[in-house]
Design a protein around this nucleic acid. Structure first.
Lengths: 340, 340
DNA sequence: TCGTGTTATGAAAACGTTTTCAGAAAGCGT
DNA sequence: ACGCTTTCTGAAAACGTTTTCATAACACGA
């Protein structure tokens, strides 16, 4: 490994001088300047980010904790974080939490021990207190979760409204026998979306909590299994609202297998608007969560945190900017018996 | 930030002693041992990986260069790399190359300057020589590409066979008017898959190079556009073979839009076997590339590189283990006019 | 030619670890 | 109580940078 010392020696100057031309922190006279540049080129010198991080106490790295990199939701999140970080000359380091408390904590701690300048965290298994303990005083932005005490560093969304919007759309289209497919884990996202679902149903005089429901793993496979089960138990259903798009994709697969003609025979709606939704058939109607944009915003917030203490999401980060929004595509059709 | 010095002070021992209990590199007597443990706990001490990396010249990090994190292919690759690395207590740092030479080079250099123990590289824009220059003497495994001179550190696949298998399947099912949808960039993957496609066609007396073809960006959108174009120009087509699954998903969307009844009216085949393929309709018949497994193998190879100089893919890494394999699902149907 | 103010340069400290080396402490056989 | 191992322990060097501080070199007006 060629070090700054090698360059200095070759150029016949001190290491301070080399450092100065590398970083442009001070002027160095013409002849020496060139000599250094030449030596750097000849040796193919590459400053050690490690040494820099040690002395500067900053690493130009943003840490990211996600559940599973192969899940399109997190792929988009990673994309957003990486892109925005890159725009500021920062690199991203991603770790998986796998939805297990000890792994999530280890992931965060390790990112901190690497002296990431800031971290973007998506966790589910950790309790609020555990999460707070793990992040300590590291500049962190929590995605998709509202942690009491540090709300100003959280980006969360109105999951209740999200569920409400989706259900309302189904109701508007005349559906009354709607099933709910949720995820296994008892997390607030799931509860809130279901609660919004119930609220919409109540508004038209249906008891949502009594609606047919089934839960499964938050994967396409989970959605598939749940849908099969639900269809078996409730042949009268005309529509399903799923926890998210990935599960909804699983539902569609189940429906195709059972030879439903889609979307005429049955409607499905999801949440998230992941890439996948545009390539299932019928294209998925969903409620949009601007995931990539959320990743970008998280990084911007960290940059703010780094620049000046006062935390401030600023005008452009208004939660209002992230209102869930219905995206109408093809997977929801009017139900023939529409009465209104 | 609490340092080893703080812990030493609090425990009334030297920093060497603290280091020893942290790493278990030597025995320290009972009373002191406990004192150190206690101090560590009270201060919530977290050793600095940065300092460790500097002195030890190893960082417990594996670097990964991919094209685009939101693409399911790379999501799976990242998943495999991350999982295998984690199993050995290594972390993964991912950067995007975006298919632009200067970014790909910068990504590699930056990973090296961070002193990654090894890197897994997927690049397209860099020439062989540029790639070799960039990786220098860093333990690296090149994925999906055969770089002359370091074949023993490359994991590549028989793209020609891949294309051949896919086309043969379509032919077997009776299709004779088959279109090819390739990707824009003139890269060997694309050339080889097309060459395999031609070979299969020639075997039944059709001139593959004269087959209807269209290229586009290697995205679902690209596949969609290309399919629309191809269908317009060649209404007689009964099947399309796409460069990969993502483009094939785009084809399916185009076909649905044009109201083809799938799979009866038209067949589509892809390559890769990404997650997405199971959730499009009809489920995609494809040729499998075990992406996640490839990521795992790459990390294992790096571990080998690190442990002992002699590079050796070993029995379990035989390229034979990665033979492309046809995965029959629903997107290819028998063509009615089947003569044989 | 001398001060005086700028500007360019190098020496050295600092960052937080690990590791080497030498010395202190402790055990043990006599 | 003596030497001889063996076991623990701390001081100090090393890793590759950045940055502070002092000084050397230089220019300029008198």
């Amino acid at each position: 490994m060629v070090t700054i010392k090698d360059v200095a020696e070759r150029a016949g100057v001190s290491i301070s001088t080399v450092s100065r031309v590398v970083n442009g922190t001070a002027k160095v006279k013409g002849t020496k300047h060139e000599a250094v540049l030449k030596a750097m080129g000849e040796l193919n010198y590459q400053p050690s980010s490690v040494a820099r991080a040690l002395v500067g106490n900053r690493s130009s790295m943003i840490g990211l904790v996600v559940h599973d990199l192969a899940d399109p939701f997190f792929g988009s999140l990673a994309r957003g974080v990486t892109a925005q970080a890159a725009a500021s000359g920062l690199q991203t380091m991603t770790t998986e939490g796998q939805h297990r408390a000890e792994l999530e904590a280890a992931a965060i701690r390790s990112l901190i021990s690497r002296r990431c300048d800031g971290i973007v965290v998506h966790t589910l298994a950790l309790s609020n207190q555990e999460l707070l303990d793990a992040i300590g005083d590291c500049p962190a932005v929590i995605v998709n979760r509202k942690v009491p005490g540090i709300e100003d560093r959280c980006l969360w969304f109105d999951n209740r409204l999200t569920g409400y919007l989706a259900a309302s759309h189904l109701l508007e289209k005349g559906h009354r026998c709607i099933g709910w497919i949720g995820r296994n884990e008892d997390i607030s996202d799931n509860r809130d979306r279901f609660s919004g679902f119930c609220k919409a149903l109540e508004e038209v005089g249906v008891d949502g909590t009594a609606a047919p429901q089934q839960s499964g793993a938050a994967t396409a496979e989970g959605g598939y299994q749940a849908a099969l089960e639900l269809l078996k138990k409730h042949p009268d259903l005309t529509a399903i609202q799923a926890y998210n798009d990935v599960m909804a994709a699983g539902c569609l697969r189940a429906l195709h297998e059972r030879d439903y003609r889609l979307p005429d025979d049955f409607s499905v709606i999801g949440v998230d608007d992941v890439f996948l939704g545009q390539f299932v058939y019928p294209q998925l109607t969903t409620v949009r969560y601007p995931i990539e944009e959320i990743g970008r915003t998280a990084v911007r917030m960290i940059e703010g945190l780094l620049a000046d203490k006062p935390v401030d999401k600023g005008a452009e980060f208004q939660p209002a900017g992230f209102q869930p929004q219905l995206v109408v595509r093809d997977s929801v059709s009017c139900w023939a018996d529409v009465s209104g």
